[in-house]
Computed example of a mutant assay.
Amino acid sequence: MRTRRGMDLILIGIGTGDPGHLTRAAESALRSADLVLIPDKGADKADLAALRDAICDAVASDVPRGRFAVPERRADDGYLTGVEAWHDALAAAWSAAIPPGAGRVALLVWGDPSLYDSTLRIAARLRPAPRITVIPGITALQALTAAHAVPLNDLGAPVTITTGRRLRDHGWPRGADRVAVMLDGDCAFRTLDPAGVTIWWGAYVGMDRQMLDHGPLAEAGPRIAEARAAARARHGWIMDIYLLARAA
């Protein structure tokens, strides 16, 4: 994917929906940009673009913005193959949206670019390779534990961070009493034996529509599945995350 020689790409973590998640370093990096690229995910997810616009309006209103349409991800040839093709298409969309001489281009990344986000992998596809700067942000995992006022780990114990797909296909990760689950589109917690398991769940964490629930998995699980389905139908999209703890 061709980009402009000498381009600087700034990946700015913006947290999970609360404009207060933006750090001073993020504000400074945003003001230093020559262009901010805003992803357009269609009408159903227009509020995600609107939040990025609101951040730019508040912090760097004079920095020009460009938009790119987020291509549809297909899984006809399997999950990983589909994701790789999707990343190729996203890199091409970035390149097409960056005008000659853009200089410093910023992308506002939901959460943090390091945790279950592919912005860095997409950026690695650009040619010639841009100079990349990453500004860390508050992750959905931090926002979830803060919203529930619980620690991520038990005393001196490990935590496994995984996806709903892997939880569904492989079960409870070996060697962990606490498991944080991201990218779960089908309530994979329903595949677990709920005995002795506690769940802390959150959707739209950090946004004004934030939803929270917690309790024994046997009791809270059905509530969460029902609330999740209703919220997705109401808003057209949902992003959620949960933490599971199993009694020793």
Rank of each mutant, 00 (worst) to 15 (best):
R2H: 13
T3S: 13
G6P: 04
M7L: 13
L11A: 02
G15H: 02
P19Q: 09
R24Y: 12
R24G: 14
S28L: 14
A29E: 04
D34S: 11
V36D: 07
L37V: 02
D40R: 13
A43D: 13
D47L: 12
A50Q: 12
A50V: 10
R52N: 08
A58E: 10
V59L: 06
S61Y: 08
G66M: 07
F68T: 01
D76L: 11
Y79T: 14
Y79V: 15
T81A: 15
D88W: 01
A97V: 00
P100D: 13
R104Q: 10
R104D: 09
R104Y: 08
R104I: 06
L108D: 02
W110A: 00
G111D: 00
Y116L: 00
S118C: 03
T119M: 10
R121H: 11
R121A: 12
R125E: 02
P130A: 00
R131F: 12
V134D: 05
I135N: 01
I135T: 01
P136Y: 00
P136T: 01
L141N: 01
L144P: 00
T145C: 11
A146L: 05
A149W: 04
L155Q: 11
A157M: 13
I161A: 12
I161L: 14
T162V: 05
H170G: 10
P173G: 03
G175S: 06
V181Y: 01
L183K: 01
G185C: 03
G185N: 04
A188E: 05
T198L: 14
W200I: 06
W201Y: 13
W201M: 06
A203E: 04
Y204K: 08
Y204S: 10
D208H: 14
R209G: 10
Q210V: 03
M211I: 15
D213F: 06
P216A: 15
L217F: 02
E219F: 06
I224F: 08
A230T: 06
R234A: 15
W237I: 03
M239H: 05
I241F: 06
L243A: 07
A248T: 14
